[in-house]
Amino acid sequence: MNLFRLGGDLAHLVSIFILLQKITANKSAAGISIKTQILYSIVYVTRYIDVFTKWISLYTFVMKLIFIASSFYTVWLMHNTYKSTQNPQIDTFKIRYLIGGSIIMAAIFNHKLTFNELVWSFSIWLESVAILPQLFMLQRTGEAENITVHYIFALGIYRALYIPNWVYRWIFDQYFDYIATVAGIIQTLIYSDFFYVYYQRVMKGKKFELP
C-alpha cells in the first residue's frame, strides 16, 4: 500500500458517498446515468468474483463488499425509489457496444485463459469505459448540478491516482500489470477533457457548463 493507492481508494469511497448523498438528499436521480451505474455493478461483481474465496487483506475484503453493495444499492434506488426522476430520454448511450468491446478485449488481453482471469480482465476493460454514458449524458444536457460534477470528478481522481501508484509499484515493488495500467491510462484519458472543463469552470466558482 502506498499513498497514491490509498488516496485513490478514498476518492472512490468519497465519490460513492457524494452520489448517494445527492440522490437521497434531493430525492432525485436527475442527471445521473443509470447505465453507468449498471456498468459499475457489473464491473464490481466480475472484478471481485473471488471476494469470498481468495483472502488478500481485511482492507480489500471490506472495500470490495462496499463497492459491490453500494453500486447495487444505487441502481436499486434509481430503478425503484427515484425512477420517476430519471432522464431515460437523454440516457441513450448504447452500452451493449461497451460490454461487447470489453468481452473482445478480455478475450485478447488476459493473464491466463481461466474463467476468473477472463472476467477480471473484462471488468478492467469495462471499468475503463463505464463512465461514457454519464459523460455523454452531461454533454447532451450541456450543464449539470455541481454535486453531479463533483461525483464524476472524485471518480476520475480515483483512477488518475492509480497511475502514480503503478509507477511507484513498478519502481519499488517490481510489480507491473500491463492490463490494469493500459486500461487505467485509457480511463484517465477519457476523463481528461472533463477535468479540463471542471478546472476552468467549477474551480473558479462557476456553474458547470460545457463550452
Binding site: D9, H12, I56, T60, K64, N116, E117
Partner: peptide, 10 residues
C-alpha cells in the same frame, strides 16, 4: 508463472 494470479488492487 504462478498458478493463480494475485490481484491485490481494487
Amino acid at each position: 508463472e504462478p498458478e493463480t494470479i494475485q490481484h491485490d488492487e481494487l
